[in-house]
Simulated scan of single mutants.
Amino acid sequence: MSLHTRISEDSQEIINYIHLGTFIPVLSEFKKYIMSDLKAYDAKVIFLEKKLEAQFGEMTENIIGMTLIFGDSDDILYFGFFNVYDHKKEHIEFLLNALIDFGKSNNFQKIRGPINIPTVIYGWGFMVEGSKKDLFIGCPINPPIYQKIFKKKGFKILFKEDRYDMPSLKLNPHKVKKLIELGINEGDYQNNFFDTGNYPYQFMTLGKDEITPKIFDEVLLLYSKYMPPSGQITPKKAQNGKNIINFIEEFGAKWMMWFVREKKTGKLVANGYAIPNVFDKNEKEELNSMGFQSWVVHPNHRRNYLSILMYGFVITQAKDRKTPHYIKRGLWPVGAENIANANAAKKMGGKKSKSHLILQLLIS
Rank of each mutant, 00 (worst) to 15 (best):
M1G: 06
M1Q: 09
S11D: 10
Q12L: 14
I14L: 12
I18K: 01
P25K: 02
P25E: 06
L27G: 03
E29C: 03
F30H: 11
A43M: 08
F47G: 05
E49G: 03
E49K: 10
K50G: 10
E53S: 07
A54H: 01
F56W: 05
G57E: 01
E58F: 01
I64H: 01
M66V: 06
F70L: 11
D72Q: 09
F81P: 00
F82W: 08
K89E: 15
E90L: 14
F94K: 09
I100H: 04
S105F: 02
F108C: 05
P118G: 09
P118M: 15
I121Q: 01
K133C: 13
F136Y: 03
C139N: 08
C139Q: 11
C139G: 03
N142H: 04
L158I: 07
F159Y: 00
R163S: 13
Y164M: 02
Y164K: 00
D165L: 14
V176A: 13
V176R: 08
K177P: 08
L179F: 01
G183Y: 06
G187Q: 05
Y189H: 15
N198F: 04
P200G: 11
F203K: 00
F203Q: 00
F203W: 01
F203T: 00
F203N: 00
M204D: 15
T205C: 13
L206R: 09
G207F: 13
D209Q: 13
I211A: 11
T212K: 14
I215E: 13
V219I: 14
L220S: 08
M227G: 01
P229Q: 03
I233Q: 03
K242M: 09
K242W: 05
I244G: 04
I245G: 10
N246T: 02
G252L: 13
W255R: 04
V260D: 07
R261K: 15
A270F: 11
Y273L: 15
F279Q: 03
D280G: 01
E283S: 00
N288M: 05
M290C: 14
S294M: 15
V296K: 11
P299C: 12
H301V: 15
H301Q: 15
H301N: 15
Y305L: 11
S307Y: 09
I308H: 03
G312L: 12
I327D: 09
L331E: 15
V334H: 02
A336M: 04
A342P: 08
A342H: 10
K346W: 12
K354G: 04
L362R: 02
